[in-house]
């Protein structure tokens, strides 16, 4: 059974549809990557899946359960976590408090998880008591991902996790995504750095004008001359 099954989604702002029947299906141990031109509806798709935007038509299923238009806090409890592209940390809270906030819905002891996340992102361990707003861009992205991982999600949604990062941090983030995926977390992410993202993707979704243009394995899309010409910059 597919982990995430979004079928025929229509959604948009103020009565205007941006998504016109988009499908996205990934399995439990897969990384899915959404690419496409600006305004193709990539971020909108993530927001629609995460209940931040009203889906007017179509269904979203998580592990077979219908979650269409479910409120974000319920989705978090259902095991789905979302990292927005911008403003994805609590700047005046310390790094550790940011992680604790990620675990807000948990009532059990989660201290081992915090240590586990410091294991993923050793940079954060030394800055655990520093306000997250004082960190560098790459470190903030780590805090944001760490926060999302605190619920031990089955599916992690990432909106452009490497936007605006230096190459060093970009590579580190991609490595971490692979590592996280290896522990059995499904990942669906939107990326501007399409080539690198497709290289680690099991599935790729190329969107254009709110519709699926190409859907295939990451490798197949990388080698598809048409995709390369229009979406990967030649």
């Amino acid at each position: 059974m597919a982990l995430l099954e979004a079928k025929g989604l229509y959604a948009g702002y103020g009565g205007m549809n941006i998504l016109n029947g988009v499908d996205a299906v990934i399995d439990a141990d897969e990384i899915g990557v959404i690419i496409g031109a600006n305004g193709a509806g990539k971020s909108t798709l993530l927001k629609a899946i995460f209940g931040l935007l009203h889906v007017s038509q179509g269904t979203v299923k998580l592990a077979g359960k219908d979650i269409t238009n479910m409120a974000p806090d319920k989705l978090v409890r259902a095991g789905m976590a979302f990292v927005p592209q911008e403003q994805n940390i609590f700047p005046s809270l310390s790094v550790e408090e940011n992680l604790e906030m990620g675990a807000f819905v948990r009532r059990d002891d989660f201290s081992h998880l915090i240590e586990q996340i410091y294991g993923y992102f050793p940079d954060l361990a030394e800055k655990r008591n520093q306000p997250a707003g004082e960190l560098s861009g790459g470190q903030r992205q780590m805090v944001a991902m760490g926060r999302a991982l605190m619920i031990e999600p089955s599916l992690l949604l990432l909106d452009e996790p490497t936007a605006g990062l230096s190459p060093r941090y970009m590579n580190e983030i991609f490595e971490r995504i692979i590592a996280i995926n290896k522990t059995g977390v499904g990942v669906l992410m939107v990326e501007q750095n399409a080539k690198q993202a497709l290289a680690i993707a099991h599935k790729g979704f190329v969107l254009a004008n709110g519709r699926n243009r190409f859907t295939n394995t990451g490798e197949a899309l990388l080698n598809d001359p048409e995709v390369a010409k229009s979406f990967l910059g030649g």
Partner: peptide, 23 residues
């Protein structure tokens, strides 16, 4: 406390608080 920190979190960034599952 958990709730007090959530309050500061919501003051910092209400959208992210919602996304994190804070009630």
């Amino acid at each position: 406390t958990r709730l007090g920190k959530a309050m500061r979190a919501m003051s910092d960034n209400p959208d992210l608080a919602r996304v994190s599952g804070i009630n």
